[in-house]
Amino acid sequence: MRTRTTTAALIVAGLLLTLTACGEDDTAAKPSAPPSLTDEQRSSARAAAGLPPEPSTTARYKFLEALNDIDRRIVDGKDDKAVSRGLNQCSSIKRASGDEDKQVELVKQTLSRFTIDTRLPDIATPETGGEILAAVHQNLCPDF
């Protein structure tokens, strides 16, 4: 009987010690939030990466509308992803400026970046790539 009581007491004591250890201040273990950037810093970083500024609401709408006119499955309800891919394509457009070989390669890259070649092989043509590329250039980075 004593063994059972002693064992039970030890188990209860161990549980209490475990629970009290959970209540200790553990704020040192939490990572701090990253510092937020100012609009100017964000804009500077975008420019350094070869990206245009964030599109206006109107430009964003026109871009998504242009993609939907090509084929509604391109955006497929993922507006933010489509805009992000378009902005990344802008940096490629900027790098290829004036180089005809690179511009031909852009069409292939566009199909890949928008996952047309894997998701929608039935429309993975140079024409579709060119149309998407034109929509990106016209609506997201006309100055590139």
Results as ranks from 00 to 15, higher is better:
55 P>I: 01
48 A>N: 11
11 I>K: 09
97 S>C: 12
58 T>F: 07
100 E>C: 00
22 C>S: 10
104 V>H: 06
91 S>W: 00
48 A>Q: 12
78 K>A: 15
68 N>Y: 00
118 T>A: 09
31 P>E: 15
59 A>L: 04
38 T>R: 04
23 G>R: 15
19 L>K: 04
53 P>I: 02
64 L>Y: 06
136 V>G: 08
58 T>C: 00
28 A>H: 13
75 V>D: 03
59 A>G: 01
80 D>R: 15
103 Q>H: 02
72 R>C: 00
121 P>G: 11
115 T>A: 10
92 S>R: 11
126 P>N: 13
136 V>S: 05
48 A>M: 06
65 E>H: 14
56 S>D: 01
57 T>G: 00
96 A>D: 06
17 L>C: 12
128 T>F: 03
65 E>N: 14
58 T>S: 09
60 R>D: 03
59 A>T: 03
12 V>H: 02
75 V>Y: 01
16 L>H: 01
17 L>S: 11
67 L>G: 03
43 S>W: 05
1 M>I: 09
93 I>R: 02
132 I>W: 01
86 G>C: 09
136 V>H: 01
136 V>L: 04
101 D>K: 11
99 D>R: 13
48 A>H: 04
82 A>S: 15
131 E>D: 13
10 L>V: 13
113 R>C: 01
46 R>T: 03
129 G>D: 06
114 F>A: 09
105 E>D: 11
57 T>Q: 13
127 E>G: 08
67 L>F: 11
130 G>Y: 13
23 G>H: 15
12 V>E: 07
123 I>N: 06
56 S>Q: 03
114 F>E: 11
9 A>I: 07
141 C>L: 07
102 K>P: 00
31 P>T: 14
12 V>S: 07
135 A>L: 08
5 T>A: 14
59 A>P: 04
83 V>E: 02
67 L>E: 07
133 L>T: 06
133 L>M: 10
39 D>V: 09
97 S>A: 15
89 Q>F: 05
28 A>G: 14
47 A>W: 06
26 D>C: 01
133 L>Y: 01
34 P>D: 10
51 L>W: 07
122 D>H: 10
58 T>K: 08
75 V>T: 14
100 E>I: 08
69 D>T: 12
42 R>F: 06
57 T>M: 05
140 L>P: 04
55 P>H: 06
125 T>Q: 05
27 T>I: 10
141 C>W: 02
139 N>Q: 15
115 T>E: 14
132 I>K: 01
32 S>R: 15
22 C>G: 03
74 I>G: 01
72 R>D: 04
29 A>T: 11
15 L>A: 12
16 L>N: 06
111 L>G: 10
69 D>C: 00
93 I>L: 14
71 D>E: 12
31 P>F: 08
13 A>L: 15
54 E>C: 00
74 I>Y: 03
54 E>G: 02
92 S>W: 05
109 Q>A: 10
128 T>C: 03
58 T>A: 13
91 S>F: 00
141 C>I: 07
5 T>G: 02
84 S>F: 09
56 S>I: 02
64 L>A: 08
23 G>E: 15
135 A>V: 02
121 P>S: 09
98 G>K: 02
38 T>F: 09
114 F>W: 05
27 T>K: 15
40 E>K: 15
112 S>H: 10
60 R>S: 10
15 L>C: 13
130 G>S: 10
